[in-house]
Every structure is written in C-alpha cells, then in structure tokens.
Amino acid sequence: MGSFRGHALPGTLFLLVGVWHLWSCLVRYVSNPKSYRVRVWHPVPGFNGKLKHLELYVIAVGAFIDMCIELLYSPHLTIFVNGVLNPRHMNDFEHSGMLLMFFIFGAVTLLSVKTSFLPLPEGALCLIAAAAFSSEYLLFYFHSTSHKGLEGYYHLLLVLLVGVCIASILAGTILPDSFPADLCSGAAIALQGLWFYQTAFVLYGPMMPEGCRLKGNDIVCRSTESETRGELLANFQLFGQVLGVLSLAVAFYWFAARRFGHSELQSLLMSEEEGLD
C-alpha cells in the first residue's frame, strides 16, 4: 500500500521530465528536421549555459531524495530486523531500488556529458534509461505488496505505461533518427507522471469511486459492481489523459513551428505527403 505523497513526488518528477521532452524534441524537429537525432536528455538553452544540464540534475537529485525517503525515512531507520531486511517495509526497499536505477542513469549521464571519465554514445545512455524503466516495470509487476481489486487495476495501467516508456526508448536506440520514437517517449513519461497523480487522487484522495473506500491498508468495494464501475472510470481517466497529452503535443508543435520552424520543414512535409500519394 502506498500514500498520496508517495505517488505525487515521483509523479511530479516524471511529469516535468516528460513535458520537457515533448517540448524539446518538437522544437529540435521543426528547427532542423533533416538532421534530427534521438536524445535521451535535452539541454536547457540560454542563461549562458548555466542551466544546460538542469534536467539531469532534476533526475539525479530527485531520485536520490526520494530514494532516501523510501530507504531511511519510511522504515524509520529500522532497515534490519533480526539480521534480515525489515519485512514490514519490503515495498519501501523495492521502491528505493527502482529509484537507485534512475539516480544511476542521471549520475552516469552527467559524468558522460560533463567529464571525460565516462564518454558514452547516446545509444548507450538510451539503454541505461531503458534499464531504469525496466526495473520500475519489474518492481510494479512483481511487487511484494499484493495489489488487488481496484488498487491492482490502477497499478496494472501504470505497468502498461511503463512498458510504453521502455518500448519507445528502445525504438529510439535502434532508430536514432526517429522523431516519432522520441516524441512517444516524452509523451509516455508525461503520461506516467499524470497517472501517478491520478492514482494518488483516486486511491488516497478525494476522487475515490462511489461504493469503494480506504480501509486500513486496503481499498475495499462493497460489491463487484462498484469495483467494476471504478475500473471503467479508470479507463475513462486514462483516455482523458492520453487525449490531453496528445492535445498538448499538437499545441506545442503549432507554437514551435510558428516560432522556430525551419524553411525546409514545409518542403519536407510536402515531399512526405507526395510520397504517400
């Protein structure tokens, strides 16, 4: 069982990074579509380069802080009991392991781009990012906390979104000039952040479906019909978020094309349309 803050904090990090990825890859594409390359991270322009690596610092520092909360604060520093890991907080230790992978990704990427100690190609960095999302996928799929009923359904949809993140990043690794793969990656990360928030508001906040309630550490519904209605509501919520992220991407593209669009963009799109005809 989780908590509102336990879902809102990682949701904020995923949402910020995902929206930034969406905007950045669209700006890079409209600026120079022919030389577009997939990037696993996107530098922040301006400010004399002082904020260039802000995204990587957000990932590394955010993951480290959240990892410390899960590993140290949540179990109240009682990590070992009778020589073994505290069985009452196994889910916190699992979360900290997942966050460690994202911290490693942020730290390794910073070392790669800022120093000469660990120069890695973009494809290798993409694989490290995919490994971090894979650890998240395995965590939620084989969680020691038994997610059942309505809670399990929300986490099942979360697992599907994590799977899309993995697939899109791997696609970008295999096809390093694929704009759709890069765009899908940003959208999937943003959707994952939104779904963390949705789960927090539904299971631990004011949006609990009628007929279901939080009882102790479990979500219980008074009937099968109430649970089914809650699952159908989850489907509708996910559809609304997908539609919202797609609308945001279209709005970003329209604005970026008007402000940063390269002269070759229109001719490239016209040539692609003629090829389809």
Rank of each mutant, 00 (worst) to 15 (best):
G6K: 12
A8W: 12
L9P: 00
P10D: 08
G11M: 14
T12F: 15
L15Y: 11
L15T: 13
L15N: 04
L15F: 15
G18W: 13
V19H: 12
V19C: 15
W20C: 11
L22R: 02
L22Q: 10
S24L: 15
V30L: 11
P33Y: 11
K34C: 14
S35A: 12
Y36Q: 13
R37S: 06
V40I: 09
H42Q: 15
H42K: 04
G46Q: 06
G46E: 10
F47V: 02
N48M: 00
N48H: 01
K50G: 01
L51A: 09
L54V: 01
V58P: 06
V61H: 10
G62E: 12
A63E: 14
F64K: 00
F64Q: 02
D66T: 07
D66P: 07
C68T: 08
C68R: 09
C68A: 09
I69D: 09
I69R: 14
E70S: 13
L72F: 15
S74R: 14
H76R: 14
H76L: 11
H76C: 02
T78K: 14
V81E: 15
V81H: 14
V84Q: 08
P87L: 06
D92H: 06
E94T: 05
G97K: 12
G97M: 14
M98H: 01
M101D: 05
F105C: 02
A107C: 04
A107F: 10
V108T: 09
V108M: 12
S116K: 11
F117K: 07
P119Q: 01
L120M: 14
L120W: 06
L127D: 09
A129P: 00
A130C: 04
A130F: 06
E136K: 10
Y137K: 01
Y137P: 00
Y137V: 01
L139R: 00
H143C: 01
H143D: 05
H143N: 10
H143K: 00
T145R: 10
S146M: 12
G149I: 03
E151I: 01
Y153L: 03
L156W: 13
L156M: 13
L157W: 02
L158C: 03
V162G: 00
G163Q: 11
T173D: 02
I174M: 05
I174V: 10
P176E: 03
D177I: 09
D177P: 01
S178N: 05
F179H: 05
D182H: 00
D182P: 01
C184H: 09
C184R: 10
S185I: 02
G186C: 08
I189P: 14
L191V: 00
L194D: 03
F196Q: 08
Q198E: 10
G216P: 04
G216F: 10
C221H: 02
R222D: 13
T224Y: 12
E227G: 03
G230S: 08
L233D: 09
L233R: 08
A234Y: 07
N235L: 08
F236H: 09
F239C: 03
G240H: 01
V242T: 07
V242P: 05
L246P: 00
A249N: 08
F252D: 07
F252T: 05
W254Q: 06
F255Q: 12
F255R: 15
F255M: 13
A257I: 03
F260E: 15
H262N: 14
S263I: 10
E264R: 10
L265M: 04
M270K: 15
S271A: 15
S271H: 11
E272S: 10
E272C: 11
E272M: 08
E273G: 08
L276Y: 12
